[in-house]
Structure formats: structure tokens, C-alpha cells
Nucleic acid binder design. Structure first.
Length: 274
DNA sequence: CTCCAGGCTTTAG
DNA sequence: CTAAAGCATGGA
């Protein structure tokens, strides 16, 4: 087991995990167990440090985006001089954008559409448990997120039986395509071209594409617009646009390369009522 | 009972 | 091109 720590000012496990960007984690002792692709870690705060324990320390160092200086990110965001946003990144100072598995993000956010977070977690957990490979971490079992090839072996009725609802066909079709093509060829694309390509997968629209782009491909120029962001736009920005694509254009033109950070601080604070 | 949740595909105009 | 119906599921 490897172990490292990091100053907890801009790295708080609760803020990082509960802000809606990841669906596979659970409370454990003083912190959380976190699962990404086929790997696991234990993250907790001890005094002024947040500590990560894992067999894959290097993977999780990058996963938690620890090469990036969030003091500088927040300083940039404060220059937009929007009181609500300043409050959000003060309240949720320990939040960071995770670098997650593109495949896991693609399937997870296909499942997320017109759905709520507790249910999304349940569906993903059941899929991992029944299709993913069994692993062990700290003396307990866990399950890897399944490869696209494994996912493609199951049919729509199977995913419906796990509670995926009408998204069953989306999972099957996208799994078959990713099993055949992979996603490696998307990593070299810039944000606009990546989004355009992601939109060609069955079950992926603008919002899901933005989430996959942001959390799976590290494209901070992405600004996913969901029902919560619509609410923020309406109530806190006094916006009148109805079209989500136009709301997305409004925010991305405002925040540019910092769109994704702003989006997460706002989403988290609104949803948690902070 | 209706409404809502990190919306998308399909069809109609 | 835009607008709206239809979609599975479970909790509030």
C-alpha cells in the first residue's frame, strides 16, 4: 500500500466527492473509499492534511488533479467579480475537478439523463457488481467498472433489469461501438471537436457530452447545463433564455477556460444549499 | 395522486 | 430549422 498527503485547504474529500462529478464512492472510517475504473483508494483528512492510500498512488495523484494549483484557479475566478461565484468558491474551497476514466464517464452520464443522483449511483453500482471484475482493497471486495467489451456482452433486457429504464438501449449500442473503436482517438481533439464527436454516440446529447468532456477528458472549457444550472441561471443570474444550448453559450463565453470550475462550484452549492 | 431528477431520441410542423 | 411528445424508475 502506498500513501501520500496534501494540504487540505484546496483538497477536501467531501467537497470533491459530493459535488456530483463521481458516482462510485462510499463513506469509510474517517473518510471515503473511492473507485475509479478498476482501481480503489481510501481518502480522509487528518489535521491539516488530506491523505490518500492506494496501491496506485500515481494514478490517484492525477485523478485528484493534484498537479494543479487551485489557489490560482480560484484567484482567476474571483476576477469575474460575481458575488455568488465568490461565495461559492469560498464555501466549496476544497472542491477539485477529477480526472476520471473517459469510458466510465461516458456510460455513467448516459445513465444520468433525466435521473437523480442516488438512483444513478445505484444503477452504476449494480452494473459494476454484476459485470465488472471482482477486486480487493483493504480486506474488502469491490468491483471494477466494466470494460466496454464486457458491457457489450449483455443485452437491453439485462440493463433494464438493473433499473436503467429506457436508457438500456443507449448502453448496449454505445458499448458495442466503444468495444469496437475504443475512445483513444478522442483524446487528441480540442474541446469543440470532442463535443461534436461525443454527440454522435447514442444516448449522448449536449449536457452528457459536456460532462464526459469535463470529467473524462479534462476539458475545463465545458459547462454542462442541467436542471440545476437552469435554476441557477434563472434565479441567480436573472436569465431569460430557455434553450439550454444558448444558456451554455452564455456561460462559456463568460468564463472561457474556467467554465468547468465555475460550473462545479455553482452546482455543488446550489444542490447542497450551501 | 402529481412532480421531479446532472436529458435524449423521435416525430411533427 | 424549432417544438413537443414519449420515455423507465423511484422518492418526495
Amino acid at each position: 500500500m502506498q500513501k501520500f498527503d496534501y494540504d487540505n485547504t484546496y483538497f477536501n474529500p467531501k467537497d470533491v466527492l459530493e459535488c456530483g462529478q463521481i458516482f462510485r464512492f462510499e463513506p469509510f472510517k474517517a473518510g471515503y473509499k473511492v473507485y475509479s475504473a478498476d482501481k480503489a483508494c481510501y481518502v480522509y483528512t487528518d489535521k491539516s492534511k488530506t491523505v490518500v492510500e492506494s496501491e496506485y498512488a500515481d494514478y490517484f495523484y492525477r485523478f485528484f488533479d493534484l498537479e494543479r494549483e487551485y489557489a490560482a484557479v480560484i484567484e482567476k475566478i474571483r476576477q469575474f467579480n460575481i458575488p455568488l461565484i465568490n461565495r461559492a468558491c469560498e464555501t466549496a474551497k476544497g472542491l477539485r475537478l477529477l480526472n476520471q476514466s473517459p469510458e466510465e464517464m461516458l456510460f455513467s452520464f448516459i445513465i444520468s439523463q433525466n435521473n437523480n443522483i442516488p438512483r444513478i449511483k445505484g444503477i452504476i453500482s449494480r452494473i459494476s457488481r454484476t459485470v465488472g471484475e471482482r477486486r480487493e482493497f483493504m480486506g474488502e471486495e469491490y468491483y471494477a467498472f466494466p470494460s466496454a467489451a464486457r458491457l457489450a456482452e449483455k443485452d437491453a433486457a439485462f440493463y433494464k433489469s438493473l433499473g436503467a429504464g429506457y436508457r438500456d438501449e443507449f448502453i448496449v449500442q454505445t458499448a458495442k461501438r466503444v468495444a469496437a473503436e475504443g475512445l483513444e482517438h478522442l483524446k487528441a481533439l480540442d474541446a469543440p471537436e470532442l463535443k461534436k464527436q461525443l454527440l454522435t454516440y447514442h444516448g449522448v446529447g449536449p449536457k452528457v457530452a459536456d460532462c464526459v468532456s469535463l470529467f473524462g477528458f479534462n476539458k475545463a472549457a465545458s459547462f454542462p447545463v442541467d436542471t440545476w444550472i437552469e435554476k441557477i441561471y434563472r434565479e441567480d443570474f436573472n436569465g431569460t433564455l430557455k434553450d439550454r444550448n444558448k444558456i451554455n453559450a452564455y456561460f462559456t463565453s463568460l468564463f472561457g477556460e474556467y467554465s468547468g470550475y465555475v460550473q462545479q462550484y455553482l452546482f455543488y452549492c446550489k444542490r447542497e444549499n450551501l
